[in-house]
Design a protein around this nucleic acid. Structure first.
Length: 918
RNA sequence: GGGCGAUUAGCUCAGGGGUAGAGCGCCACGUUGACAUCGUGGAGGUCGGUGGUUCGAAACCACCAUCGCCCACCA
């Protein structure tokens, strides 16, 4: 083994070997275990959120694989329609060309090229993270098999009457020129105005005043509505207004939707450009005037003066013209909620178009029941509430997108516009009995990306064929994902899985938090605060980091701030921490909260942990050179560390079962560092490095070193696969374990036979002894190297026996030159004191110890004890406590009080002695 | 408007009806043959506020404050 820990070399070597050896494929005859990767978008590279999520899934997969389950972590990628199309379009723009110039076919080819590139990076990143996915099953949402699944699902839903085509208002993105689903529209509060316009009555007898935030839509008004009970306008209902600028007569209608308190209580109605107005228009049979084109510019149905103007230009001109006509009453500042496309950021326009929809309620019902009945369990459980809230209010799903990149909708039209839905054109002709001379053209649109993602749990396993994989791995065990896509993805997988597989797609949904930067900010390119997981693994210098963060920035004015913040946070770039450190950090951060701040301090600490493990292993190897199994006696320390290890194993298993990788990481870290390294390795030295121990004792310690380390490595493997494999290969043989890889070894399980309360009590005594001595050293400024003579006062027989049994440990680890129990009646010298149960540890002063310092040290301890005693007594003096608290609690409190009192007494004695000296 | 979450040491966070925890940071000391990416010792918190339940609340309940997120929205 190399003298120093070199993550880069280890990681490359081990991953290649695992992959070549086929260790990632499901194997054996155990129960199947399956996790479907949330397929990353082929828009570039994996970000910290992916790396976090992948770490969790890999840990779970490795854990179950080691438990002997036939484990599949299904990998793959998502074509991500809009997102990917935008990436490639941006590239084309930078090259001075465009999607339209290329034409559909060549554009799609170009996206495929990009997909290869991006897919390659993503696969490389997954490998670097140590992801044990079965690469032979890698899938892509647009590959042949998955595309066949998509069309099949579409056709079946259509045939079942659950997909329909309709002309309705949709969310239209005028920049991307496509419809969006409700989920792809984000509301943002933005400052604006509320314009009060006068609309004259057609009969010339006055006017009414309407309030609007969107003056430009008045060109499409087809009515003004008031509340039916609004006394102010009751007389006017049914009368006509003349719509200014357009000179169209429109009616005043009464509708309960109108809030009389808002504005003037008069609401202009534009059915073509507002969702509420559309509904109201239907109720009152109002005409629909669509005044926008695809770009949200004014179309030819509007008066000529406004044609061709963009929304905002039209707004300005309309306000000006209304003002010129004297029809503007007032203008107020007003904050309004603006709908924006989640990808383009453009203001989305309600727009009347033909789109395809899924009739969702029939699918939602069983999906709600699946969670209600517990067939699917959310972890943490409260996310089920979020799921229910959405599912109970779900609206039909608009699934058509006016894009080029995606699954083309399997629908054909004849010249009369009749619709034929089937897997292929040929199938359509056959299904509908269409002769060859009827010409058909396929729908130009593609499907929403989430339509194919929703099939992922079964399409990846070969559906619609009834494959062995489907039988084995559907339903999967757990879905690991963020709460941000519960609606987009989780809900749809549940609905579609139930519909097409007749069963839920997974038993549990583990919802993890979202990775944010150290200030709690979302990591995003435009904020310039993104971290590339590979940069944390490999390290990166400042210049490269600066370039990465500012290259291709959309808003150039942000560059100086990003530059400065980056320089401040990473003055020397980022050191290479290695994949294991990164993974362990992610695991440790996987708490139940929803925001996870990525703190560089944590990864630094866990990098050191790797180093610690490495060095401890070096020690174990050196200490067991030439080790052969033979007669072995296990010392108290040997039994103690095995007992502790067993308890750690038990809790780590619990934590894995509960998806608490943070607690699992913590438990392993504490055991490794603070029990195995801090104590056990130190305690092994006196046995192995001095001549006192017998061969059997040495054997016992060597065997324990090897077995504990070997087990610890297996326990740690799911979180830190690389370093554990590297070390394990070195020590397994010596520990008596055969195997080519740690990743197929059994995961440690609790074995009560190793539990040893007696050894634990014994070692607690030893450790307290040594800690007492160290405390005296530390506070009395005695150099750590100087051997001390220790006297025991009021030592029990057991204390004496223990002191004798562990004399070597005390000498070597505690740097104690000698331990001697004071005889009955023997004069007690002036000494620094530590308490150990009934006994006092005395370090005689002989002028070498500062009496005043020792006094103040003891006084401080005494004060602390007094506080404890006071609190304890208050409780015991409270009759209610004594009468009502459980007996064992009262007993415990009594014991505590007695113990505090006794220790105070001991300190008082000691202080009196010191006083006598001074 | 409805819902959810957070508030614990300087920072990042665990915990959870009876003794307040970790890592990092801080202070002091230390080249003890695994490790200075280390070791040893230490300082540091009335667990956001108010009220309630309880013998006992940091924990459970209610309300409030602050911050954050999600959903729905009155033009």
């Amino acid at each position: 083994m190399d003298k120093s820990y070199d993550p880069a070399g280890i990681e490359e070597r081990q991953y290649a070997r695992w992959e070549e050896s086929g260790y990632f494929a499901p194997a054996g005859s155990g129960d199947p275990y399956c996790i479907m990767i949330p397929p990353p978008n082929v828009t570039g590279t994996l970000h910290m959120g992916h790396a976090f999520q992948d770490t969790i899934m890999d840990a779970l997969t490795r854990y179950h694989r080691m438990l002997g389950h036939r484990s599949l972590w299904q990998t793959g990628m998502d074509h991500a329609g809009i997102a990917t199309q935008m990436v490639v379009e941006r590239q084309l723009n930078a090259e001075g060309t465009s999607r339209k110039q290329l034409g559909r076919e060549r554009f799609v080819e170009r996206v495929w090229q990009w997909k290869e590139l991006s897919g390659g990076s993503i696969r490389r990143q997954l490998r670097r993270l140590g992801a044990s996915v079965d690469w032979s099953r890698d899938r892509f949402t647009m590959d042949e098999g998955l595309s066949a699944a998509v069309t099949q699902v579409f056709v079946r839903l259509y045939d079942d009457g659950l997909i329909y085509r309709g002309k309705r208002l949709v969310n239209w993105d005028p920049v991307l020129h496509t419809a969006l689903s409700d989920l792809e529209v984000l509301q943002s509060d933005e400052p604006g105005h509320l314009w009060h316009f006068r609309y004259p009555l057609a009969d010339g007898r006055g006017h009414i005043v309407i309030a609007t935030t969107r003056p430009e839509t008045m060109l499409g008004d087809s009515a003004v509505a008031v509340h039916p009970d609004d006394e102010r306008y009751r007389e006017l209902v049914g009368k006509k207004l003349t719509l200014p600028l357009v000179n169209r007569n429109i009616p005043i209608v009464a509708d309960g939707y109108v809030d009389p308190e808002f504005g003037t209580g008069c609401l202009k109605i534009t059915p073509a450009h507002d969702f509420n107005d559309y509904e109201l228009g239907l109720r009152h049979d109002l005409p629909v005037y669509n005044i926008f084109d695809d770009n949200a510019a004014i179309n030819e149905l509007a008066p000529p003066a406004y044609r061709g103007l963009d929304r905002l230009a039209a707004r300005k001109k309309i306000v000006d013209d209304m003002r010129a006509l004297g029809l503007v009453e007032t203008v107020e500042d007003h904050t309004l909620s603006v709908p924006r496309g989640d990808r383009s950021g453009a203001i989305v326009e309600p727009y009347l178009t033909d789109q395809w929809y899924v009739d969702i309620k029939p699918l939602a019902k069983p999906a709600i029941e699946a969670v209600e009945s517990g067939r699917i369990r959310f972890v943490p459980a409260n996310w089920a509430k979020t799921y229910f809230d959405w599912m109970h209010n779900i609206e039909d799903w608009c699934i058509s997108r006016q894009l080029w990149w995606g699954h083309r909708i399997p629908a054909w039209y004849d010249e009369a516009g009749e619709i034929y839905v089937a897997q292929t054109e040929a199938a359509a002709r056959e299904k509908y009995g269409l002769p060859d001379n009827v010409s058909l053209r396929q729908d130009e649109d593609v499907l929403d990306t989430w339509f194919s993602s929703g099939l992922w749990p079964f399409s990846t396993l070969g559906w619609p064929a009834e494959t062995e994989d489907l039988r084995t791995f559907y339903p999967g065990n757990v879905l690991v994902t963020g709460f941000d896509i519960i609606f987009f993805w989780v809900a749809r997988m549940i609905m579609l899985g139930l519909k097409f597989m007749g069963d839920v797609p997974f038993r549990e949904v583990y919802i993890h938090g979202l990775i944010r930067d150290q200030d709690g900010q979302k990591m995003s390119k435009s904020k310039g605060n993104v971290l590339d997981p590979l940069d944390l693994i490999d390290g990166v210098d400042l210049d490269t980091l600066l370039k990465k963060r500012t290259a291709g920035l959309m808003q150039l004015h942000l560059k100086p701030a990003i530059d400065a913040a980056t320089r401040q946070q990473f003055p020397n770039g980022i050191p290479a921490y290695g994949a294991d450190a990164l993974r362990f950090t992610f695991a440790a951060l996987a708490t139940t909260g929803r925001d996870i701040r990525f703190d560089l301090g944590r990864i630094e600490g866990y990098g050191k942990f790797c180093n610690k493990l490495w060095n401890a292993s070096l020690y174990v190897l050196r200490s067991t050179e030439g080790f052969k199994r033979g007669d072995a006696t296990l010392s108290a320390a040997d039994r103690w560390i095995r007992s502790r290890l067993n308890q750690t194993i038990s809790s780590v298993n619990d934590h894995f079962r509960n998806y608490r990788l943070d607690l699992a990481a913590q438990a392993i870290y504490d055991f490794t560092w603070h029990e195995f390294c801090d104590w056990y390795l130190e305690l092994s030295k006196p046995v192995l490095q001095s001549g006192h121990a017998t061969d059997a004792e040495k054997n016992g310690t060597q065997l324990t070193l090897l077995e504990v380390l070997e087990t610890l490595l297996r326990l740690l493997h799911p979180l830190m696969p690389f370093i554990t494999e590297e070390i394990w290969l070195e020590i397994a043989g010596r520990a008596g374990v055969a195997g080519e890889t740690i990743m197929l070894q059994p995961f440690p399980v609790n074995d009560e036979r190793w539990r040893d309360d007696e050894a634990e009590a014994e070692l607690r005594w030893v450790m307290q002894f040594i800690l007492g001595i160290r405390q005296i050293r530390g506070e009395m400024d005695i150099s750590p190297g100087r051997p001390l003579r220790v006297l025991l006062q009021e030592a029990s027989d057991e204390d004496r026996r223990r002191a004798a049994r562990h004399a070597h440990l005390l000498e070597r680890v505690g740097r104690v030159q000698s331990v001697r129990a004071l005889q009955q009646g023997e004069a007690v010298p002036a000494a620094a004191t530590a308490l150990l149960g009934e006994m006092k540890l005395l370090v005689p002063m002989k002028g070498s110890i500062d009496v005043e310092a020792e006094k103040s040290r003891l006084v401080k301890q005494r004060q602390k004890l007094l506080l404890d005693l006071e609190r304890s007594r208050q409780k015991l003096d409270n009759r209610n406590f004594v009468n009502n608290a459980p007996a064992d609690v009262v007993t415990k409190e009594n014991d505590r009080a007695a113990e505090f009192g006794r220790q105070i007494g001991q300190l008082d004695e000691q202080l009196a002695k010191l006083d006598a000296l001074g």
